[in-house]
Design a protein around this nucleic acid. Sequence first.
DNA 1: CTGAAAGCGCTTACAG
DNA 2: CTGAAAGCGCTTACAG
Lengths: 392, 392
Amino acid sequence: MALPPIHEDTLFMARKRTIDDIARLAGVSKTTVSRVLNNKPDVDPNTRERILRIVKEEGFVPSATAAGLAGGRSHLLGVLVPSFTWPMIPDIVCGIAETIGNTAYELVLYSLNDKTRENGEGDIIDHILSTNLVAGILAVLPGQSSKFVIRLHQHGFPVVLIDDQDDPPLVPWIGADNQCGAYDAVKHLLALGHRRIAHIQGPMKYVCSRERYEGYCQALREHGIPVDPALVVEGAFDTVSGRDAAQTFLSLPEDQRPTAIFAGSDLMAYGVLAFAEEQGIDIPGQLALVGFDAIGSSALVRPALTTVKQPFEEMGQRGIEVLLSIIEHSDQQRMNVRPGYTRDFMSPSRARVDEPANAPPLRIQLATSLVVRASCGMQQRSPFSSIKSISR
Amino acid sequence: MALPPIHEDTLFMARKRTIDDIARLAGVSKTTVSRVLNNKPDVDPNTRERILRIVKEEGFVPSATAAGLAGGRSHLLGVLVPSFTWPMIPDIVCGIAETIGNTAYELVLYSLNDKTRENGEGDIIDHILSTNLVAGILAVLPGQSSKFVIRLHQHGFPVVLIDDQDDPPLVPWIGADNQCGAYDAVKHLLALGHRRIAHIQGPMKYVCSRERYEGYCQALREHGIPVDPALVVEGAFDTVSGRDAAQTFLSLPEDQRPTAIFAGSDLMAYGVLAFAEEQGIDIPGQLALVGFDAIGSSALVRPALTTVKQPFEEMGQRGIEVLLSIIEHSDQQRMNVRPGYTRDFMSPSRARVDEPANAPPLRIQLATSLVVRASCGMQQRSPFSSIKSISR
DNA sequence: CTGAAAGCGCTTACAG
DNA sequence: CTGAAAGCGCTTACAG
């Protein structure tokens, strides 16, 4: 009956309390404590208040492990990212981590390395599922958003996709308005007087690449400029392919050469910079350049890169918000399902309950913004101009 | 007695199996299955093999949640990082994630944002502890390695520190050889003929900043050059403070002005670049510049930055390795402790068992390497030179 | 509005 | 070498 001794070190006190301790201290059953802890209704206001006070005094935090086991609900959110070598991943994860930090959930990070990439993706999803650790997954999958993710979703497992989407859209998705972003970029070049504007596409298997291409075409069309196939090359989003594309374009006969390039990613734009530097081609003097993404280093390259900014942090933030709403929604639904199926998200009856099969999945498209810097020939603004000296 | 139905979809099969299913299938008790699953001795080789086969056939993965609850052991590793705005964090996390991916553990990411920074750090550690979710923590704490982390360690909770260390060293630590790295950088400048070499220190409250300064002094000393206090300024590791320092140095009377600057971080070196660009000072022509860290963008700035490379990925990797060995070691110790104290890592008896109180903590210091680029005046190598064109 | 009891899926002495 | 039973710290019907 004796309580565990009170330790002087409050940092470590919390660790030993259990729901039983709190129940005893409050003179109630642990059922009631559990109800209070989970914000369930039907608790006497006084009782609730007393328990809450004791919980606070004792610094009690329920064991997420035990709660997960008992309730079949996890407080863990899985985040699946491709290799950190992609420069926007840190920004996205930053938004994700910040947002999760404001909730009662924890972030479990799964990352695909180069090995687990193509073939291993099924494995990792399999792993995520079979360990049964997380309540849902937020996946940043540059690629065909994976049949695995689609299957997860179809089976009622909470999943949200960031960045690239599938076609047709089958899974809840957060991304940027790629077409509009590309359109703005090309309009800007047109406004600067360029007429022969080349485009380095991203891999066309990605919907986002196709949308950017579409934005490019749309802007040209509005100016009555036909799309010249010689001025469109498919790249791989990386620097090497950007360099290759630049070489291709600049090897054209002089009168067919582009005066501006719109690259489908900043990394590909870096490849253009590299080739120009090598060949002594002046950017923006002889060639204007615009990228897409606005990753951090694009302010540091020379000339500083004009580029289309994707709101990566916000994408992470919104992604978590949507995931949580899906999780909570399916929790609610779960209550209406007959017991025995409670944890079985494969069961047909669950799938039926979970979501109208023909409801279109949620899509959130965030606005991009054009960041104008030196590479497209506007007045040169130092990328460091925002750095104010601190007087001392 | 009937087994759950077999589903056609292997992706989802694993999810429903429990240790009981496997036990039944193998004709043994779940105790035995548990033993096999945990590589315990004293199991008949044939039995073991049979169970292993069935586990594999069924794609069974034990519930980490249940195992954690029952065994008091978690398969989760906490990783605590400061804001992702620090450019080396992605590299470190990459090494961490990759390494954890090869183990049976999962990565739980905790990140400090600007709000939770100073004051909230205790909170987050308190949170980590009281949720009792992770088996140990790998912390990347640029700063005085936090009294919280030290306390954790002293109480026997597995903790490893990356990057900055405390002084005197009290917690297992992985980092780079800062002094040696700085020494190499300054030696390089000396070899290029520079004699008036300035140093922008990192914040001197960090041990790593003091070590880099020591390496700077050591190199000068060896060349019989006294350290000129006018050529040493303390910065804050960020771009703004680097710019301020450059302004200070370059405002000196011409004959006292440095011909080279060794910045204690790449970001501070960027500040020097910015100021030089503004003032029309040629780097490396009029001023040589070397940074520290070798973050990715330092290859992209112009002139490309010569810098001291820290093996960030390896630091992450080694950090996890050390953390795991500590966790496993303390697991082993735990066996020798009388029951009742099993989970109580605060108990004095546990602390005594855990580690000889006066054993010096593990320290792993990794070698740095100097990356020579254009900013210090060697022959200009294009930072893109490693980009090979793909012939098509 | 509240509590006793069963159970989540494992691990761990303990007893063969 | 193996198994029955208790227990990890919660949640959830179920019965008041």
